[in-house]
Amino acid sequence: MAINDQRDVHTLVTRLAEECEKAGLTATVLSPTRVHVSAGAHSRLTETIRCHPGADEELMWWWSWGEPICPAASIDLAIRHIAHVVAPQGGDR
C-alpha cells in the first residue's frame, strides 16, 4: 500500500532527518515535505530533499533538480545516495 497521507509524508521526512543525523550528516526539516542535508556546519555541499509521489503515486525521495532518488520507504538507500552527494570521498570538488 502506498503511503499518501500528508502525516505519513511528514513522518518519513522526520525519519530521514533523524537517520541522516545518525549517519553523521546535518539535517534540518524545512517543511512537512522537505529536509535540508549537509555534511556539517562548514560544508559547502548541501541538498534539499523532497518527498512526494512519483508517476505511479508511490512516494519517492527527490533531488532539488527534480530527479528521483529512491522510494521513500527506502530510507537507508536514500541516505547512502545523499551522503555520496553532500559528503563525497576524495577531497574537495
Rank of each mutant, 00 (worst) to 15 (best):
S31V: 08
L12F: 01
I79C: 04
H81E: 15
Q89S: 14
H52A: 11
A72P: 02
K22W: 05
I69R: 04
H42E: 15
A41T: 12
L59M: 13
V9S: 03
I82Q: 04
A2F: 15
D5N: 14
H42V: 13
I79Y: 05
C20G: 04
E21Q: 11
A41Y: 07
A2S: 12
L12N: 00
K22V: 05
V86D: 05
T33H: 10
H10S: 15
G54C: 04
T48Q: 07
G24S: 09
G40C: 08
R93K: 09
S38C: 02
L59Y: 05
A23R: 10
G54I: 03
V29W: 06
A41H: 10
I49K: 05
S64D: 14
A17G: 07
G54F: 05
R34D: 13
G91C: 12
K22G: 01
T46C: 11
W62A: 03
G24M: 11
G24D: 09
M60I: 00
H42S: 15
C20V: 05
Q6F: 12
A23M: 06
R34V: 01
K22T: 12
H36R: 14
S64C: 06
P68S: 14
E21D: 10
V37A: 08
G66Y: 05
A17E: 02
V85R: 15
M1I: 02
R80W: 03
